[in-house]
Design a protein around this nucleic acid. Structure first.
Lengths: 341, 341
DNA sequence: TTTATCTACTACATCGTTTTCGTGGATTTT
DNA sequence: AAAATCCACGAAAACGATGTAGTAGATAAA
């Protein structure tokens, strides 16, 4: 069922039917009613490709994320999809699986007009961003894992401050030697979190120790190996600041293996959005990011960008607050239970 | 940059260029090389809408899921996306948020040829399936939450058997009064899991008790209320079989609140794919579904269906095995640690 | 020599919408 | 009454790619 068949049924021209369906003022309201009724009756649906081709718009956006089996990206996607659904947009999803080559080929794919805009979070292995700089005309927003030097809207949490808070929290609970674990050397979030960590050390007059900064860029077993080595050292750390959930899980596993008690022997804090952290043994102190809101915000800004490309205030970065939720994995002997800061 | 501009640059006709790019035998290899080179040089990309319109194919599939902030659907999506990426397909994602009305409107949206096929998992609130029966011509596969009476390929795990195993496991560990909690009265997975539960009771000569079958179809707080009431009864259950992770979490929370010990006072088993279940306090016995494989399988079958609609063997249902992983939440006094069954 | 077959290309219709530019008739303005 | 404006609609040209149906020119078969 297309416009021309519908027009024939109605004894009208194609253009009149088209206009009637889009509620044009050129068509009398009587005719509009007839057309609408017939269209409903025959279940007419606009052909999206013809329409997209003609209008040079797709009402579709792309979401490019490293992975989705993850308690952070899940709610982010949910937030984005809600906004998109409400705005009548469609969402194409692409996973980079943390692989820069995949990221590059996905971005190439998106340069042919298939989408009106892109929301993305960088892969951990992305070391240069030439592929993104070529997207000059394409509305683009970054969320969470951003490329700082690319001049597009960015939605992040305050990673520096979160890193500072987390480290400071460990120190306040008695830690003297704190290890920092991160999944990438390239990601801005990692750098910022680390700078927050370093700043907290400095403020508390603790000397930086490079051997306590552990890159965990391998698979789960490799990361466990790094952590095992770390915790088997003679002067092992008494606090661990993991920047992603899976590293905290690995830490718990290694502590069990080495019969180290959390928090007595090692305290652990971690960025995480999992629902189960409060039920872990011991419950895990986390920095929790407003994931759903981040998704909503990113989508909202992208749509503004699509609809009104040159609005300069859009380029301001949006920084959302994370929460430190203290639980048992960082509890010191003297302190009682703590709550949300 | 489109075909006609490219043709002008090359002093060739549009059709020759088009054919050259698609490696047609009508074009000499010398010409093909020229065209390819020029296309690369000028960064020519096929306009997907023109192409889709002409070919009446979109190389795009839709994924319709209840939610994504979830340890099951995350890996499923990952599996699907991998297969799609490899096959050169695009994936549109739509969330129903467990809402039948949203599901209906999403399906309506997809009837205009935007996608070549649909993979879906029903919303928990979907009570009738008229909207899906209208999809007669559209390649469709169900995964996990299927509509049994619709004659399309279905990829599931063996829910009856899983329900049986879970219940039998509880009984073998000493439970006499086992509650069954499910998120929907409609979903086939719930019915099958419940039938497995009932069959295990029968086999072990335990009488069915309807007050132990608890529908948990509300939000988190409502579900917690139901569980609280359940566990406050004089003759409370000594075993709980939760069919989704969030119900197990709610159970843990209520047990803590009521000072009930797991597994001494109540044993808990649950369907879950979370990475953290082994670290919970106590570690949670789970039935774990092969989520990633399910996604891969569903996508693979959908592509076969798209490419070769009338292959009858495709209609056979695919049933994957789940694993029961025994942990501390179901441990009986006499038994030692148990392992994968 | 005539006819058939290839080869390597081109012209053009088509996919289904959207939108610009008309147009004939009615209504209003001068 | 002539001119201007409006109203409600239609014709046709895009949008860009694809594929059918040709067509010259060259080679092969009859």
């Amino acid at each position: 069922m297309n416009l021309s068949q519908l027009a024939k049924e109605l004894n009208l021209s194609i253009s009149s039917v088209s206009k009637a369906l889009r509620d044009s003022h050129e068509i009398s309201s009587a005719t509009k009613k007839m057309v609408m009724a017939k269209a409903k009756e025959l279940n007419y649906q606009v052909n999206p490709f013809a329409s997209n081709l003609r209008k040079q718009k797709s009402k579709t956006i792309a979401l490019v994320v490293p992975e989705v089996a993850n308690d952070f990206f899940g709610p982010v996607i949910s937030g984005m999809e809600s906004v998109a659904q409400q705005k009548g947009y469609h969402v194409l999803i692409y996973l980079t699986h943390e692989d820069m080559q995949k990221e590059i080929s996905i971005i190439k794919l998106l340069q042919n007009g298939r989408v009106d805009g892109i929301m993305m979070s960088l892969s951990a292995q992305t070391t240069n961003t030439g592929h993104l700089e070529e997207l000059k005309e394409m509305p683009l927003v970054f969320f969470d894992r951003v490329a700082d030097h690319i001049d597009v809207p960015k939605i992040t949490t305050d990673d520096f401050n979160s890193g500072f808070m987390a480290t400071d929290h460990l120190i306040k609970n008695g830690c003297k030697r704190i290890a920092f674990m991160c999944i990438s050397q390239n990601l801005s979030i990692c750098k910022k979190r680390m700078n927050g960590y370093l700043e907290a050390l400095k403020k508390n007059k603790i000397e930086r120790e490079n051997s306590l900064i552990i890159p965990c860029i391998g698979d789960h077993e490799e990361n466990k190996d790094s952590i095992r080595k770390l915790l088997k050292r003679k002067n092992r750390p008494d606090g661990i600041f993991a920047s992603v959930e899976k590293l905290a899980i690995a830490t718990y596993e290694i502590c069990e293996e080495l019969k180290l008690k959390i928090p007595q022997d090692v305290k652990v804090i971690c960025f995480s959005n999992a629902q189960t952290v409060a039920l872990l043994n011991p419950s895990l102190t986390t920095i929790t990011q407003p994931a759903y809101e981040m998704g909503e915000k990113a989508a909202t800004i992208l749509f503004k960008l699509i609809e009104n490309k040159r609005d300069p205030f859009l380029l301001e970065n949006t920084i959302l607050d994370s929460k430190l939720i203290a639980r048992d994995s960082t509890k010191s002997k003297r302190k009682k239970n703590q709550n949300v800061l």
